[in-house]
């Protein structure tokens, strides 16, 4: 394993990247101290309205549609999904759970300038990125009912939240830099002990009647090389707070980094921005120790044989 993580980069704080943004991106300057994990403190400061409070009528119908798209994305937005995942797989409890990058913590942070594409991104454009990378699919047009419904659902959930304030429980709580550089073999042992039960020994998840109950962590049906989850810090943060399902917070920091590294050292669908040259694509979009794309791990050049 030849990837070393520098403390400087580990300390870099990235607010949000469903899309494959690099840590030297717009939010690198937001190096405010991360609020302690909301779950550890008890209740988060902001609580979204109860689902039963979604009103009747045409507005409420679109809120509900957004929720159903979020929970069953493949079923309700099939034209834009290219893998076996649903939004809810990475944003638990229908996007409501603190420390699981909840929608109520995201909505009020947009529009937002992003260095990556050099312009101010609307919330809708942010959602488009999720479809392209995390869902390995296509971006729905901004006025498509899929985007409008997801926006409406997020707006409804964020009602009463302050605008432009990073709320406790927003995003995934950053995991402190590990004592030892993340290691494939140690990660493999964590995976066998704490993850394979559900995600399968081969990481390909488990299905019932053709649909995933446990989603795949790599391979053709998982998120692609452009997704935020392929970066070690984001994966470690998600995993530590949310996995194993129902036992979030169980792993120690080192285990979380190691298993994140193991997961992200497997092939997955190609980054859609790939221009035919792995090294150039790495340089353009993944020039960070948090990405193993274009790196050699265990003799395999990652990204060179993307899963299809």
């Amino acid at each position: 394993m030849n990837v070393r993580l520098s403390a400087v980069v580990l300390a870099t704080f990235v607010l949000a990247a469903c899309t494959g943004r690099t840590p030297i991106d717009a939010h690198a300057t937001d190096a405010a101290p991360t609020p302690p994990a909301a779950a550890a403190q008890g209740t988060p400061a902001f609580a979204p309205p109860a689902e039963a409070a979604i009103p009747a009528g045409p507005y409420g119908d679109v809120v509900r549609l957004g929720r159903e798209i979020f929970r069953h994305t493949r079923q309700n937005a099939p034209a834009y999904v290219g893998n076996g995942l649903n939004c809810v797989n990475c944003h638990l409890d229908a996007g409501r759970l603190a420390d699981s990058s909840p929608l109520w913590g995201a909505y009020g942070m947009y529009p937002q300038y992003r260095k990556k594409n050099g312009h101010v991104n609307s919330y809708g454009e942010r959602l488009q990125g999720c479809f392209m990378y995390s869902m390995n699919g296509k971006a729905p047009p901004l006025d498509d009912k899929v985007i409008v419904a997801l926006e409406t659902y997020s707006y409804w959930m964020a009602q009463g939240a302050p605008l432009g304030v990073k709320l406790p429980g927003a995003g995934y709580p950053k995991v402190p830099a590990p004592a030892k550089a993340p290691d494939y073999a140690r990660g493999q042992a964590v995976f066998a002990r704490d993850c394979a039960l559900c995600h399968g020994a081969d990481g390909q998840g488990q299905k019932v009647a053709g649909d995933y109950v446990f989603p795949p962590l790599w391979g053709p049906d998982s998120f692609n090389w452009g997704a935020g989850m392929h970066e070690l810090d984001k994966a470690a943060a998600f995993i530590k707070a949310n996995m194993p399902l129902g036992r979030g917070g169980m792993l120690n920091d080192q285990d979380a980094w190691d298993v994140a590294m193991f997961m992200d050292a497997h092939e997955r669908p190609q980054d859609p921005r790939y221009g035919g040259d792995l090294a150039a694509t790495r340089k353009a979009y993944h020039d960070t120790p948090m990405s193993l794309y274009g790196r050699r791990v265990n003799g395999r050049l990652l990204g060179s044989e993307p899963a299809r």
Binding site: Q206, V208, V213, L245, G246
Partner: peptide, 9 residues
């Protein structure tokens, strides 16, 4: 964990 409708996994 127990699958849709609790059919088991």
């Amino acid at each position: 964990c127990h699958g849709p409708g609790g059919v088991g996994v």
